[in-house]
């Protein structure tokens, strides 16, 4: 008999140097029933990868390790290779988008986002 029940909640890692943005991402995702882990920048994120990890939402411009660096690191990490990565940024320049895409990002959202927009993207990506 299968007795132990493991939490069905999915964990999402949000990476942003702005505490306000992290707070708003957490707000939107927690309201939608996800668990959220916050990190201040790419390096911080790599140091606290939750397991299992369902999705990463990351900013691009961050000190220490920026978003592109983080995407590349995640893509090289066996546990995170296929974790979808959503870029959440103020940037909208085509070149930056291309860079993130090539590094292995899954989707791109320009700030400011509305909570329902973010959760719609997350749901679509997680299937």
């Amino acid at each position: 008999m299968v007795e132990k029940v493991i939490s069905m909640k999915r964990t999402i890692l949000t990476v942003d140097d702005s505490a306000t943005v992290r707070q708003m991402v957490a707000y939107a995702l927690k309201s939608a029933g996800y668990d959220v882990v916050e990190a201040k920048n790419g390096e911080d994120a790599l140091g606290r990868l939750p397991s299992p990890l369902s999705l990463v939402i990351t900013d691009l411009n961050m000190p220490v390790m920026n978003g592109i660096g983080l995407i590349k690191a995640l893509r090289a990490h066996p546990d995170a290779r296929y974790v979808p990565i959503v870029v959440l940024t103020t940037e909208s320049e085509a070149a930056k988008k291309q860079e993130a895409r090539a590094a292995g990002a899954t989707a791109w959202i320009v700030k400011p986002f509305r909570p329902e927009q973010l959760t719609a993207v997350v749901q679509k990506v997680l299937g």
């Binding site: 942003d16 702005s18 306000t20 943005v21 708003m24 103020t90 400011p112 986002f113 509305r114 329902e116």
Partner: peptide, 13 residues
């Protein structure tokens, strides 16, 4: 409250 969530990000921008 979604409006507020959007406006809050103004700080980061």
């Amino acid at each position: 409250a979604g409006d507020i969530v959007a406006a809050m990000q103004g700080h980061d921008i």
